[in-house]
């Protein structure tokens, strides 16, 4: 059996692949932004909110983390229309990715919040702060600094995991690649290049995230800081 590699055909379809990659990036960034905002809100309520909230949020987090992402996506895209809630594929993908990410991120952020020493929080109370003011001025920054590496990894997982939304034919990189290889019968070449694109995006994301960490947490607040106890 002899297989002749033909990457020329991939080259011809490169604009489509790049468009797919671009959607992957947009979906990932969008889901990160949305999911992160949800996670901050949930993590605050989970640690400082009224009791019923805490239990409800715990249940939400466990649901997200203990069911397959694909099934969550199908619920949004195929089940919700049955009760009259309909989304386009891309919107459903964004929503699914955001909610999924928020579940993991809530747990991550919560662990950062809980690492802030009690004495810091009491210093806040002693200055007459409300819980929200304590969260905002005393907790958020150190907590995010603590869990930044975990959040950054979770972002890369989110981006790579986005290939699953091909299952509801959101036109991101994997879905486009699937279509192209099946019409051209050039599976090896297309998946090879798609893999390369994912790799590039993931490595690029990690470099960018590292730069952001440096700019936000090290350059802006000098010194080896931690909590003294």
């Amino acid at each position: 059996m002899k297989y002749v590699f033909q990457f020329g055909i991939v080259w011809d379809h490169l604009p489509q692949l790049l468009a797919g990659a671009w959607l992957t990036i947009r979906l990932s960034l969008g889901a990160f932004a949305l999911g992160f905002v949800i996670a901050m809100l949930l993590a605050f309520l989970r640690t400082a909110g009224p009791r019923p909230f805490r239990a409800g949020i715990g249940a939400y987090v466990e649901f997200i983390r203990n069911t397959p992402f694909l099934v969550q996506l199908f619920i949004i895209y195929f089940s919700l229309p049955a009760i009259g809630i309909r989304f386009e594929a891309t919107t459903a993908a964004l929503l699914g990715m955001s909610l999924n990410f928020s579940g993991y991120a809530t747990e991550i952020v919560r662990s950062g919040i809980e690492a802030v020493p009690r004495s810091q929080i009491e210093a806040g109370y002693s200055l007459g702060f409300t819980r929200l003011q304590i969260f905002r001025h005393i907790i958020v920054f150190p907590a995010l600094r603590t869990v930044y590496p975990a959040l950054a990894s979770q972002f890369v997982l989110l981006m790579l995991g986005s290939s699953i939304v091909a299952a509801i034919s959101a036109e991101e990189l994997t879905a486009i690649t699937n279509t192209l290889q099946s019409t051209t019968f050039r599976a090896f070449e297309f998946y090879f290049v798609a893999t390369g694109l994912y790799l590039l995006m993931a490595v690029g994301a990690r470099l960018l995230l590292h730069a952001i960490y440096w700019a936000v947490f090290e350059r802006a607040r000098p010194g080896e800081w931690g909590w003294s106890r």
Binding site: P117, S119, Q120, E122, A123, I138, P142, W225, W227, S228
Partner: peptide, 10 residues
């Protein structure tokens, strides 16, 4: 307090 608890990030 006895413990040093300035806010380290400010």
């Amino acid at each position: 307090f006895q413990s040093l608890n300035l806010f380290p990030h400010h």
